[in-house]
Amino acid sequence: MLNLNVKDEIATLKAVVLGTAESCGSTPKPEEAYDPKSLEHILAGTYPKEEDMIKEMDAFAAVFRKYDVALFRPEVLEDCNQIFSRDIAFVIENKLIKANILPDREKEFEAILHVLEYIDPEHIVHAPEEVHVEGGDVMPWNDYIFVGTYTAPDYSDWITARTNKEAVAFLKEQFPHKTVKSFELRKSSNARENALHLDCCFQPLGKGKAILHKNGFLVKEEYEWLVDFFGKENIFEITSDEMYHMFSNVFSISPEVVVSEKNFTRLNDWLKEQGFTVEEIPYAEIAKQEGLLRCSTLPLVRE
Rank of each mutant, 00 (worst) to 15 (best):
L226G: 14
V227L: 13
D228G: 12
F229T: 04
F230E: 14
G231H: 12
K232I: 07
K232A: 15
K232C: 13
N234T: 09
N234H: 04
N234C: 02
I235N: 01
I235A: 08
I235C: 04
I235K: 00
F236C: 07
F236Y: 15
F236K: 03
F236R: 09
F236L: 10
E237N: 05
I238H: 11
I238L: 05
T239E: 14
T239F: 11
T239K: 06
T239H: 07
T239D: 11
S240D: 15
S240P: 13
S240I: 00
S240A: 07
S240G: 10
S240L: 05
D241L: 13
D241K: 05
E242F: 07
M243S: 10
Y244S: 00
H245G: 01
H245V: 02
H245D: 08
H245Y: 00
H245P: 01
H245I: 06
M246K: 04
M246D: 09
M246W: 01
F247S: 04
F247H: 04
S248Q: 05
N249V: 15
N249C: 09
N249P: 14
N249L: 13
V250I: 13
V250Y: 03
V250P: 02
F251S: 10
F251R: 12
S252N: 08
S252Q: 11
I253W: 05
I253S: 05
I253K: 07
S254V: 01
P255I: 08
P255L: 06
P255E: 08
P255S: 07
E256P: 00
E256Q: 05
E256S: 01
E256W: 00
E256N: 02
E256C: 00
V257M: 01
V257L: 00
V258P: 04
V258Q: 00
V258K: 03
V259Y: 06
V259H: 07
S260K: 01
S260I: 02
S260A: 10
S260Q: 03
E261W: 00
E261G: 06
K262R: 03
K262P: 02
N263Q: 08
N263E: 14
N263P: 01
F264Y: 11
F264V: 10
F264H: 07
F264W: 02
F264I: 08
F264K: 09
T265C: 06
